[in-house]
């Protein structure tokens, strides 16, 4: 039976840990050995909405495994612009490729693609719903920095209301043991109640705070997010909150050595460039881990685990 990766909710803890282990094995392989793992295989990256970073990460992952990549980077460049249905696009492209990574502004598209296609589907983001490869690379990054995910103290900062990355990460962290999450956001961008309620019956905890400075002293990880202008129906509201949490190098002076700052990128103003040179900056390594995790996932879905 073919495999897909559609939603972090489809994965149990055991499978998440298996993917983290697989990514570590892939990372440890010499580059020349990796480059021979998927000769002749083709990844189609179907991006119905722009996302340079995720698309390039998938493409880099496939190229470094010795495979090749076809695809498009926005709906205007696809047959959708001519009126083709999403279903027909998937049915056609599956004839051209061995695995598909799909991003689409509508929720549920990756699941639909998986139902239609006879080849594996990777969800590269479906509307406001899921972005499971981002979640897995975030977990991989945590485990690389700390050797564990259990028991970490993680401050989530910025747009907790609309951030698909944050929602998926929270849901995944609930599966681990004793993760303490501190929520720091403007009132209008708080984490949805259904997510905080989901902690009931788990060993995870949520608490709200307004102070980024306090979080820097008392956390293992500060996970920053961009306030997403495109999510605001009223730009006046966006202007009120856009720069409410900005991390600068001088604020990290009293932070514990272990503290890592993560960000799914792209950043705008929420992390000052002077943070990059501090030992706390973890976001570029996080981006690198994205390629490794996506390599692991492509290999797993194509039944080509090393």
């Amino acid at each position: 039976m073919k495999k897909d990766l559609i939603s972090i909710d489809d994965l149990g803890l055991e499978q998440i840990l298996d993917y983290l282990d697989l990514a570590a094995r892939v990372e440890a392989l010499p580059a020349e050995k990796k480059a021979g793992l998927l000769p002749g295989k083709i990844l189609a990256t179907l991006f119905f909405e722009p996302s340079t970073r995720t698309r390039l990460s998938f493409e880099s992952a496939m190229c470094r495994l010795g495979g090749r990549v076809i695809g498009f980077s926005e709906a205007a460049n696809s047959s959708t612009a001519k009126g083709e249905s999403f279903s027909d696009t998937i049915r056609t492209v599956e004839q051209y490729a061995d695995v598909i990574a799909v991003r689409h502004p509508k929720e549920g598209t990756a699941r639909l693609a998986a139902e239609i296609a006879g080849i594996p589907i990777l969800n590269a983001g479906d509307g406001a719903n899921q972005h499971p490869t981002q979640t897995l690379l975030d977990l991989y990054t945590l485990r690389k920095f700390f050797g564990r995910v259990d028991g970490l103290k993680i401050a989530l900062v910025g747009d907790l209301k609309y951030s698909r990355t944050i929602h998926s990460l929270c849901r995944a962290l609930l599966a681990f043991d004793g993760v303490a999450m501190t929520l720091i956001s403007p009132e209008s961008l708080r984490l949805p109640g259904y997510l905080t309620k989901a902690a009931a019956g788990t060993t995870a905890t949520f608490r709200e705070s307004e102070s980024l400075v306090d979080a820097l002293r008392d956390s293992d990880v500060v996970y920053m997010t961009r306030i997403q202008k495109e999510r605001f129906p009223d730009l006046v509201e966006y202007e009120k909150v856009k720069d409410c949490y900005r991390l600068e190098a001088k604020m990290l002076a009293g932070a514990p050595a272990r503290l890592k700052v993560l960000h799914p990128l792209p950043r705008v103003n929420e992390i000052s460039p002077d943070v990059d040179a501090t030992p706390h900056a973890g976001y570029f390594e996080q981006a690198r881990n994205g390629v490794i995790m996506r390599q692991a996932l492509i290999l797993d879905l194509l039944d080509a685990r090393p």
Partner: peptide
């Protein structure tokens, strides 16, 4: 039908 207007099943009603 799904209550979410942005669900793909509302964009492709044959699904």
């Amino acid at each position: 039908r799904c209550i979410n207007p942005n669900c793909i099943t509302n964009g492709e009603p044959h699904v």
